[in-house]
């Protein structure tokens, strides 16, 4: 199918997917770095003197967060990033499995990352209110709605075209 036959909305969704994948990817890298740092803090204690992360890591310890929790968050974020990035290719090719289903799983993973971050990370670290989380949850819901309601037929038609 030529690029012109692809609905513009799918191209726009792939751009949005890319930007969300990048932002989750950035957060994922920081989760892994934090887990490494938290391991060091647990082994050696909080370093003496001026240290920028003192308050933050103290807060993480107070909340009872372990490096494993941060690594789980990191792995979830990594999964969401990879799924969202791969689904871009599926959107552009209008592939039912790579686009619609991988995009759906990516959206669910993105929502799970947001929910687990709310549950595990200290409130002050989330730097905002619950409505900012509602805002973060909007994209996964929007993505799933678009893939399964608005663009469903485009993916299925393309699959039929390929099989005949």
């Amino acid at each position: 199918m030529a690029a012109n036959d692809r609905p513009g909305g799918l191209t726009a969704l792939s751009v949005l997917n890319g930007s969300f994948a990048l932002s989750v990817g950035g957060a994922t890298i920081s989760r892994f770095l934090e887990s490494y740092k938290l391991m060091q803090v647990l082994e050696n204690g909080i370093p003496a003197g001026e240290w920028r992360g003192r308050y933050y890591y103290q807060k993480l310890l107070d909340e009872g967060l372990t490096p494993l929790d941060l690594q789980i968050l990191g792995v979830m974020g990594l999964t969401a990033t990879v799924l969202l990035l791969v689904s871009i290719w599926g959107f552009l090719k209008q592939n039912n499995v790579l686009g619609r289903w991988l995009g759906t799983i990516g959206g669910v993973a993105l929502a799970c990352v947001s929910v687990c971050s709310i549950l595990w990370l200290p409130q002050s670290y989330l730097k905002g209110s619950g409505i900012s989380i509602a805002r973060q949850m909007f994209y996964p819901l929007f993505l799933i709605f678009m893939l399964h309601v608005i663009f469903r037929r485009d993916f299925l038609n393309q699959q039929q075209d390929l099989s005949t």
Partner: peptide
């Protein structure tokens, strides 16, 4: 509108 790029945006 919901299928077009500008509509999604």
């Amino acid at each position: 509108s919901m299928r077009s790029g500008s509509g999604v945006a």
